[in-house]
């Protein structure tokens, strides 16, 4: 909290000028400054900021002239929708790949999966996004362009959850649903590859560790099938650690979303953050950073809680 506050206050761009422009007369500038409480000492300003924060007030965005809370409510579901679809795909692909690589450690399959993962770690996510646009949108024409929905479908579906795919399903509007899904496919796919690489890599490392365990030999000595040894015994032992990895990956997706949303013009929190940054919209930057930070922390706590709940060894 202190960190976000300080970042905001040491910004070199005077927020007063950002609001009223730099040609306003001096007395107007003074009046706005007093109105915003910027004439008081820093610690008083911090106190006021925390007070407002505790009451759910993040101030008003200069850029959109809405309150920051309203803006976040509007943009946040888009990011969550994107990140959630991405992590589901990444988990469904990454975990089996990681297990396969560990079971066949040292084989050609393993090397192939390792290279695939390393590439996912190494490619800048905006490059992947641009290539995906170039190939699937511009050249092949398979995917729709940037944005969250075609103009024709915009605002057709009543907002219930804020997730366009779910809202259109609630409204039984199949065309809107397909449109939303098609728009989601590219950014979600790009993010999914990025996090799949991490998930598969961690799964492989954990599985190698687990497969070297004595209890795996016990399980094999019991005459269990290879599948049961791998999934019930070895994988069962890493499942808890994987939950932690998934939570961290999800948090990392929020970061990846900043860049991806910018490329795909996805109206989410990431794009909101970058646009506010470029416009020196202090309250918006602070609010968005704070929300992301809180989610990050919440996910970390959740992962810890899951660990305690799921692992019989931790009492």
């Amino acid at each position: 909290m202190l960190v976000t506050f300080l970042i905001g206050r040491v910004m070199p761009i005077d927020p007063v000028i950002a609001i009223i422009g730099d040609h306003a007369p001096e007395d107007v500038v003074q009046r706005v400054r007093v109105e915003l409480g910027l004439d008081r000492p820093l610690y008083v300003q911090f106190g006021i900021y925390v007070w407002q924060l505790l009451h759910g007030d993040l101030g008003r965005s200069v850029m959109t002239s809405n309150t920051v809370v309203e803006d976040i409510q509007r943009y946040f579901p888009a990011t969550i929708e994107l990140a959630t679809v991405a992590i589901i795909v990444a988990t469904l692909v990454g975990v089996p790949l990681g297990v396969l690589a560990a079971v066949r450690a040292g084989s050609k399959t393993d090397v192939g999966i390792r290279i695939l993962c390393l590439a996912g770690h190494s490619i800048p996510i905006f490059l992947l996004a641009l290539i995906s646009l170039l190939v699937f949108y511009a050249n092949l024409g398979w995917a729709p362009g940037p944005g969250r929905a075609d103009v024709a479908f915009e605002g057709l579906v009543p907002v219930v959850t804020g997730f366009l795919t779910i809202d259109s399903l609630i409204a039984w509007d199949w065309d809107s649903f397909y449109d939303a899904l098609a728009h989601l496919a590219q950014p979600a796919g790009v993010l999914a590859y990025f996090s799949m690489a991490y998930i598969a890599r961690m799964t492989r490392a954990f599985m190698l560790d687990a497969l070297a365990g004595e209890y795996v030999i016990t399980a094999r000595a019991k005459g269990l099938s290879q599948l049961r040894v791998i999934w019930r015994h070895a994988f069962g032992n890493i499942a808890v650690r994987l939950v932690t990895v998934l939570a961290l990956t999800y948090a990392g997706l929020l970061e990846g979303a900043v860049v991806t949303e910018t490329v795909f013009s996805w109206p989410g929190l990431g794009q909101y953050l970058t646009v506010s940054l470029l416009n020196a919209d202090m309250n918006a930057v602070l609010g968005a950073t704070l929300v992301v930070g809180l989610i990050y922390m919440a996910l970390n706590l959740l992962a810890d809680a899951a660990y305690k709940l799921l692992d019989p060894r931790v009492s």
Partner: peptide, 24 residues
Amino acid sequence: MRAIRGRRAGLILQDPKYSLNPIM
């Protein structure tokens, strides 16, 4: 081999701390 391992021959390892599956 699986028919031998489970049914006809058993293996007891050194330390039950490691040789039993910790989550079952």
